[in-house]
Computed example of a mutant assay.
Amino acid sequence: MGLVPFMLQFKRWPPPVNHAALTALMDRWRPETHSFHLSFGEMTMTLEDMAMISGLPINGRA
């Protein structure tokens, strides 16, 4: 997915990977809506999610 090189820009080591969970999420990804379709509903990545992953602030000037 190309997310690991992006995360390595901000952290020194890659996050631990749960391959079974990653495979399950990939099976549930719907590119038409850019969201995950799970048993309890849809889940979408938000700006706050990316801020938490990358450690970049989302407040202030761009």
Rank of each mutant, 00 (worst) to 15 (best):
T33K: 09
E48L: 15
P5Y: 09
H19R: 00
D49K: 00
P31H: 13
H19A: 00
T23A: 06
R61A: 12
S39Y: 02
G2L: 04
A21P: 01
M50N: 08
F36N: 08
T46H: 09
P15K: 00
G60Y: 02
R28H: 12
L25V: 01
H37S: 13
L25P: 06
R12Q: 07
R28S: 14
P15S: 02
R30I: 05
T44D: 10
N18R: 00
E32Q: 14
R12V: 07
Q9W: 00
A24Q: 03
K11M: 06
L47M: 10
S54K: 04
P14Q: 11
L3G: 05
N18S: 03
M7I: 08
W13H: 12
L8F: 05
W29A: 12
M43V: 04
P57I: 01
S35P: 11
H37N: 11
M50W: 14
F10E: 06
G55N: 01
A51N: 11
H37L: 11
E48H: 12
R30L: 10
F6Y: 06
R30A: 08
L8W: 02
N59Y: 03
M7R: 04
L22I: 01
L38Q: 09
L56C: 10
Q9I: 01
D27P: 02
F36V: 06
P31I: 11
H19E: 09
H37M: 12
V4N: 08
T46M: 11
I58N: 15
F6V: 10
R61K: 08
S54D: 09
T23N: 03
M26H: 03
F6C: 04
Q9V: 02
W29T: 09
Q9R: 04
M50S: 13
P15F: 05
A21W: 00
P14I: 01
N59H: 08
M45K: 03
S35E: 15
P31Y: 12
T46I: 08
G55V: 07
P15T: 04
M1Y: 04
H37K: 13
T33P: 03
K11D: 13
I53C: 13
L25S: 06
M26C: 08
I53S: 09
R28L: 10
M52T: 13
V17Q: 00
